[in-house]
Design a protein around this nucleic acid. Sequence first.
DNA 1: TAATTTATACCGAACGAACGGTACACTGTC
DNA 2: GACAGTGTACCGTTCGTTCGGTATAAATTA
Lengths: 184, 184
Amino acid sequence: MPKDTYIPCLLNLFRQYGYDGATLSRISEATGLGRASLYHHFPGGKDEMVEAVLDYLEGWLDRNVLQMLRSSGEPLTCFQVMCDRMYEVYEGGQQPCLFAILLLGSARDVFHTQVSEILRDWIAAIAAVLEEAGMDANLAQQRGEDGVIAIQGALILSQGLQDSAPFQRVVKQLPQQLCTGLLS
Amino acid sequence: MPKDTYIPCLLNLFRQYGYDGATLSRISEATGLGRASLYHHFPGGKDEMVEAVLDYLEGWLDRNVLQMLRSSGEPLTCFQVMCDRMYEVYEGGQQPCLFAILLLGSARDVFHTQVSEILRDWIAAIAAVLEEAGMDANLAQQRGEDGVIAIQGALILSQGLQDSAPFQRVVKQLPQQLCTGLLS
DNA sequence: TAATTTATACCGAACGAACGGTACACTGTC
DNA sequence: GACAGTGTACCGTTCGTTCGGTATAAATTA
């Protein structure tokens, strides 16, 4: 069984406990692998586990969101699909975002490069859809940022209120908001 | 010298390193207080330090934002002042939000109650301003949430891109966005 | 075909370091 | 003398990590 098997499990652990809270004991327990076995699959230790999860997420985002955004469909429909995907990964707003966790955790410096790259790609993909549809480049870029901001902010708030309603409302309203000002 | 003296320093430490990253050694070094002195001022240890910082922030928010919002001025002006205050505490977007840090860190359960209360009060204060100005209660509540979402999301993104521009743009645009739909 | 090497996956036990926290004796000030 | 404040030395625990070694099965050799 390849090491990819354990990655979804690791993702859930880091999301549930944070980088520091996801101790090797917990990881060992959750994966069913002994401490030494973990180091067989991830010689770089915990950091390599996080990096593997980030690679996985980067691939997931590319396959399920960015490629779809690049497929030049109706902007509104594209963003609706994007928001549906977000609803899935974040389980309706009950799960926090690993990017934010890493960005605000004690090891932020270690993973900052990879996270910022992912965020940039995501924003650029949203902006490209809007620009393709005739929106001004600067405004499109702003809208891309606004999309990420809305989702990240909504996740924080839903986490803070322990109520997924704000996130669910945001993903519902976001596609329209991103498209406002677009002739169509 | 009262213990309040060290609270801004503690705030900066927790924001810079996160809850787990702000170790007692670092706290001791940054405050210039030995371990024994720290436990003299904060017998409850690290958790009590965080709680003291949260109390401080709660007071700061009440004094500098909520009371101002309750003073029934022009909504747009109120929100502009609010955003100015946000610009200050978050140092133009360069500093992350302690609430988010605690919400996503390993000790989220410990501080969740207090953080959620602060968020709720903040949202309610924004909503009250809009309702006072004639906005529908449900929409006003949504706008309150949107305000917090925008700021929290912008902080995450600015942190992620290591670029304060998104945050600064958001605090600039937010007052208008919160007021849209308001006659006046 | 039988023996042996190699590679992969796994494990329990232990490592040094750092953690949060405590005990206690000592200062200074009222 | 009382007591807030401090420095030092130390506690037990847990951290991430490493060590030595086992089980299994495929590949290689005799």
